[in-house]
Design a protein around this nucleic acid. Sequence first.
DNA 1: GTCAATACTTTGTCTAGACATACTGATGTA
DNA 2: TACATCAGTATGTCTAGACAAAGTATTGAC
Lengths: 257, 257
Amino acid sequence: MFRFPVHEVAPVTHSPLSIDLDRSSPVPLYFQVAQELERRIMSGEMPAGTRLENELVLAERLGLSRPTLRQAIEYLVDRGMLVRKRGVGTQVIRPRVRRPVELSSLYDDLARVGEEPRTRVLRLAVEVPPDPVAAQMELPPGTEVYVLERLRLAKDEPLALMRNHLPLGLVELDEGELSAQGLYRLLRAAGVTLKMASQSIGARNATPTEAEALDEPPGAPLLTMERVVYDDTGRVVEVGSHVYRASRYSFELTLTG
Amino acid sequence: MFRFPVHEVAPVTHSPLSIDLDRSSPVPLYFQVAQELERRIMSGEMPAGTRLENELVLAERLGLSRPTLRQAIEYLVDRGMLVRKRGVGTQVIRPRVRRPVELSSLYDDLARVGEEPRTRVLRLAVEVPPDPVAAQMELPPGTEVYVLERLRLAKDEPLALMRNHLPLGLVELDEGELSAQGLYRLLRAAGVTLKMASQSIGARNATPTEAEALDEPPGAPLLTMERVVYDDTGRVVEVGSHVYRASRYSFELTLTG
DNA sequence: GTCAATACTTTGTCTAGACATACTGATGTA
DNA sequence: TACATCAGTATGTCTAGACAAAGTATTGAC
């Protein structure tokens, strides 16, 4: 005979979940679902531990096929917001996923948090770079490239010294534009799709010149960052060598495994 | 009338691509395909620029359905080895993808490159941590946790000072085992699935104590790393606060966008 | 009461095919 | 010659359903 357990308590809540889908929208259905789920997770409507209904039920309720629904869930699993376990189910793991240091520009990062970024262009020239730089750019030694040196300030305080090398013919660099916005925005505006970057983060003490430019005492610790950026066709788009004031800056990153 | 162009030159080679699939293997078909493609890209058999045949043809040649083949390609696109463009095709972008600093342990990283890692356990205790650490671990203030302090050496030279906090009841920590292998391997052996980490990388000068322990001159630059690691259920598994000798260590990471 | 075998639930993998959409290149017109 | 139009090609999205495998809970035997 069927009996309800006496202490019937939902172990983990799972709301029946209904989402309004717009089938005439150019936004794919799976993405509409993913975005709505992401919103609910972020807003706390679906806190960590919330269990989703199973895929069959969910797909039918939303009027979608299971593959389409799975595509939405997969998107969120990849971003570390959901976990799936075969035979068990799918549940929310963590709302507060900061997701910084992707392929973002320092300028935009600062602007986003209200740090009022400014840029002072120290040098903009076309030169033959040192051989190691040419090698990183996968160019034959002796090829001329842009050399760009900038001082980045946030709220009128020096933050970083940045040296970049860029191949010619990719984008027309202009001192005025470089002062008004970040390098990455200029690249994107020129139709370059940033795809991948390989970077190395280290530390060392400031040289006297650096210390003065950054308004730090001699020997102050600096964070160093070397970065090679590729576009979607595999070309090297930019090679950067930056130093940051450790007293005012750190790299935040989220790793998933 | 049909004419061949005079200067017929294959703009990008694409081999007919045949792969032996084992349908009785427990390894999924899409993964067999993905692995084989990855191998050919890494080995240089399919250099950057190589174009794949279109999905319909490829699926038929391999005796797979298109979704299955797409799943394989998607896997490699996510890892930054292939690019797809609608109406155009799929091609290899880059063979040499170093892919470090994922959710890897320093110990295993060093061992892999032959650096002969060793660990000296300086302290292993059960204590009430400072309130900020308790907050990071999402535990009520006053809860006891493991406190672990280690010195990591590579080829008999000091490399890093590591302090970790772990909740009790997750794994039994033993000084002998901690000396012989990395913390992450112990966690995995205890059935903990590391899922996500949020970390912050900065720099500062060494304190006198740190300088001595690490065999560095006073005021030497150090890389600092603060890390909170979560498992697949969203629990905090470990909170780490490490300092590395900047003269001997840097973080390598690959970003994709 | 304990432990092994069994049933059930849920995600993982795979198939076959349809229509939509973005990009390329050829065709045709002014 | 230059430009707009159109056909062709390849990936993007979506559907409907099948079987496999892993994990959980229940059942049954000793």
